[in-house]
C-alpha cells in the first residue's frame, strides 16, 4: 500500500513537471496563432480566439480597431463586406476559436525567411561536410597511424579546448578583414574544414577501438591508408560520424556570434541573425515573432526526433553543449 502511494505521488509530480516544461512550447505555438488584440490580453488562455459578429445572417471574423465610448469600431475581416469599418455595440462581439495563420505568412514576408533559410542551410551543409571530413581524417592520423609527434599534436589540440573563443576572436576578425572575407561565409565555413578539437578527440577515442588486425590485413593486401580510411574506418564509425554531423549542424544553425561578426547585410544574414534583428524591430508584434521562433525551432526539433539515438549518444559522449 505504502509503495503504491509513493509511486502515485512520484508519478503525479513527474506529470506536473512535464506540464511545466511543456507549457512554454504550448504557449509559444498558441501565441503564434493569436490575433493582435487577443495577444494583449493578460488572462491565461491557450486557445487562440478572434472576435466575431453576426453580419447579414452569417458570423464573420472582425478586428477591433478603436473604441468610441461604449461602442467599438471594428474592421470586417471576411465575407462580402471585407475591409468595411463599422461602429458596433461591444455586446454584439463574441469570441470564437480562431487560428491566425497570417502571423506566419506576414512573418515570412517581413523577414526574407526563405532567403535566410537558404543562407543558413548553405553554411550548415558546408560546416557539416568540412567538420566530418577534416575530423575523421585527423582522427585516423592520430589513432591509426604510428608516427613520431602524434602525441604532441594530440596534447596540443586538447590544450586548445580550454581556450575561450573570446581570446582568438579579435585577431581572427582582423585576419579575415585583411583577407577581404568580411560579409562572405568564408570565416564561418573555412575553419570547419580544419578540424574541431572536441570532435577529433571523440573520433580518435572511437577509432582506437577498431581492431588493428582489420587494418593490418588490408595493408598487407596492398591497400593504401586513404583506402583503409574510406573502406574500413568510415563504414565502421557511422554512428560516431552521425554524432559529429548532428552536433556540428546544430552548432552552425545556432551560431550567433560568428554571423554577427562577419555577415553585414540582409542578403547574407542567417536565420539566427535575422530573427535577432526582427526582435529589435517588431518587439511589439508578438504573434509574428512567436510564429518566426516556431519556424526556427521546428527544423531542430524534427532533427531531434529523427536522430534521437544519435542525440543521446552525443550527450553521453561528452556533454556537447545542448
Amino acid at each position: 500500500m505504502k509503495i503504491s502511494l509513493n509511486r502515485t505521488v512520484g508519478w503525479v509530480v513527474l506529470v506536473l513537471f512535464a506540464v511545466l516544461f511543456t507549457l512554454p512550447f504550448v504557449w509559444q505555438i498558441s501565441t503564434s496563432l493569436k490575433t493582435e488584440d487577443q495577444v494583449g490580453k493578460s488572462e491565461f488562455d491557450l486557445v487562440p480566439k478572434a472576435q466575431t459578429m453576426e453580419l447579414d445572417g452569417s458570423r464573420v471574423e472582425v478586428k477591433p480597431v478603436s473604441r468610441s465610448g461604449a461602442n467599438q469600431v471594428i474592421e470586417v475581416m471576411e465575407g462580402p463586406k471585407k475591409g468595411a469599418k463599422l461602429t458596433v455595440d461591444s455586446n454584439q462581439l463574441t469570441l470564437r476559436p480562431h487560428l491566425e495563420w497570417s502571423n506566419y505568412s506576414d512573418g515570412f514576408k517581413a523577414f526574407p525567411f526563405f532567403h535566410m533559410l537558404k543562407n543558413t542551410l548553405v553554411i550548415c551543409v558546408l560546416v557539416v561536410l568540412g567538420t566530418v571530413l577534416s575530423c575523421s581524417l585527423a582522427a585516423y592520423g592520430l589513432a591509426c597511424v604510428q608516427w613520431k609527434g602524434r602525441e604532441i599534436l594530440f596534447w596540443a589540440m586538447l590544450a586548445t579546448m580550454m581556450l575561450p573563443a573570446q581570446v582568438t576572436m579579435i585577431p581572427l576578425f582582423q585576419t579575415f578583414k585583411g583577407l577581404g572575407w568580411i560579409n562572405t561565409i568564408l570565416p564561418l565555413v573555412v575553419p570547419a574544414f580544419c578540424g574541431n578539437a572536441f570532435f577529433v578527440f571523440m573520433l580518435r577515442q572511437f577509432y582506437r577501438t577498431i581492431p588493428a588486425s582489420l587494418m593490418e590485413a588490408a595493408r598487407i593486401d596492398g591497400a593504401s591508408d586513404v583506402r583503409i580510411w574510406a573502406t574500413i574506418v568510415l563504414p565502421l564509425s557511422k554512428a560516431a560520424l552521425a554524432v559529429v554531423a548532428v552536433f556540428s549542424f546544430i552548432g552552425a544553425w545556432n551560431d550567433f556570434l560568428g554571423p554577427l561578426l562577419y555577415l553585414m547585410d540582409d542578403e547574407k544574414y542567417t536565420l539566427a541573425i535575422g530573427l535577432a534583428r526582427l526582435q529589435g524591430q517588431y518587439s511589439s508584434d508578438w504573434g509574428r515573432m512567436m510564429a518566426m521562433s516556431v519556424v526556427m525551432t521546428l527544423p531542430l526539433v524534427t532533427l531531434f526526433f529523427l536522430a534521437q539515438r544519435t542525440f543521446v549518444e552525443g550527450i553521453k559522449l561528452g556533454g556537447v553543449k545542448g
Binding site: G141, W147, G149, R150, T160, P171, C194
Partner: peptide, 28 residues
C-alpha cells in the same frame, strides 16, 4: 613514410591549430 602519412592525414588539423588558434592566441 609513416610520419609523412600521419602528418598528411592531420594536415588540416595542424593548419587549423596554427592559423586559427596558436597564431591568434599570440596576436591576442
Amino acid at each position: 613514410s609513416r610520419t609523412f602519412t600521419g602528418i598528411a592525414f592531420c594536415s588540416p588539423l595542424i593548419f587549423g591549430l596554427v592559423a586559427f588558434t596558436i597564431l591568434p592566441v599570440l596576436a591576442s
